[in-house]
């Protein structure tokens, strides 16, 4: 039972990996690819690590640390890359600037 659940998590993570990494080869803007990578590298890897956690529950402290650092580092790296890619004021994509809130 646990095995099936763990394989489901790992395979879900693998599907996320392939789906989110595939757009890297295309010709979209960096930011669009960044959205795909946030699916693949953050959510996909988290699913895989949860799958591993189900297999070896006695190593939970280190795997939970892995989960936390995965989510924080990948998210912060996404923000930093997005910040560095865009210049002040000018964007190569998405000219519409609305006022949401």
């Amino acid at each position: 039972m646990i095995n099936i659940l763990s394989y489901t998590c790992i395979i879900l993570g693998l599907v996320f990996w392939y789906w989110g990494t595939w757009p890297l080869l295309g010709r979209r803007s960096v930011l669009y690819k960044l959205h795909g990578l946030s699916v693949a590298d953050t959510l996909g890897s988290m699913a895989i690590v949860v799958g591993l956690l189900l297999r070896i529950p006695h190593e939970w402290p280190l795997l939970v640390l892995a989960l936390i650092s995965l989510s924080i580092w990948n998210t912060v790296l996404g923000y930093v890359l997005a910040y560095c890619v865009t210049d002040d004021g000018t964007h190569d994509v998405g000219q519409e600037v609305g006022h949401g809130g």
Partner: peptide
């Protein structure tokens, strides 16, 4: 806040 917005796949804080 920035972490929360960037964590969800549809949105990324740019600046």
């Amino acid at each position: 806040d920035i972490f929360l917005i960037t964590f969800t796949p549809k949105t990324i804080v740019q600046r």
